[in-house]
């Protein structure tokens, strides 16, 4: 056994290294760093179909991440999905006629909500609803539509 001071020093360094490794795992590897620290405000949007959108999916404008989906509900009177978006406060100047669409990142990627700013003078406030929405693309619907059109073309000839 080494002298007592060296032992204590090395044990201290060992514990510090372990704590540092945990810190690296938390900050560098996990999604902790992508939690927005700043304040947020809520927007809602109604979609006919949200596809594979999940809580915590990204909200982007022009490809820039500005917030997250925090709640997904179903309105059984209007038969629509109600999606609550949490947008960071520093992005609070979206025009009232901003449109929301659900897109897919890559062919098999995650789905996210993309906002497209309009030209109105009024801006969206906390709790406002986005009126212009475009549902998620469902691959099966697309394929069946394509096949149906092909079949219709065939009948005409």
């Amino acid at each position: 056994m080494k002298s007592n001071k060296t032992t204590e020093l090395m044990v201290g360094m060992f514990i510090a290294a372990g704590a540092a490794a945990l810190f690296v795992l938390a900050m560098r590897v996990s999604n902790l760093s992508s939690f927005s620290a700043g304040d947020t405000y809520h927007l809602t949007a109604r979609f006919e179909n949200i596809g594979g959108l999940k809580v915590r999916s990204a909200v982007t404008v022009g490809g820039v991440n500005v917030g997250r989906v925090t709640k997904i509900d179903y309105d059984s009177e209007r038969f629509q999905a109600v999606v609550t978006l949490d947008v960071e406060n520093r992005y609070n100047r979206f025009p009232e006629d901003t449109a929301a669409a659900i897109y897919t990142a890559g062919l098999l990627g995650e789905q996210y909500v993309a906002l497209e700013p309009g030209g109105s003078e009024e801006v969206l406030k906390d709790g406002s609803q986005i009126e212009l929405t475009q549902s998620a693309l469902v691959l099966e619907k697309l394929v069946s539509k394509f096949l149906f059109e092909k079949a219709a073309e065939g009948e005409k000839k």
Partner: peptide
């Protein structure tokens, strides 16, 4: 009991 989680955390971080 104290060392094992610290070692595992170091292992994971180094592995990444």
């Amino acid at each position: 009991f104290i060392s094992m989680p610290l070692l595992a955390a170091i292992f994971s971080a180094v592995g990444v």
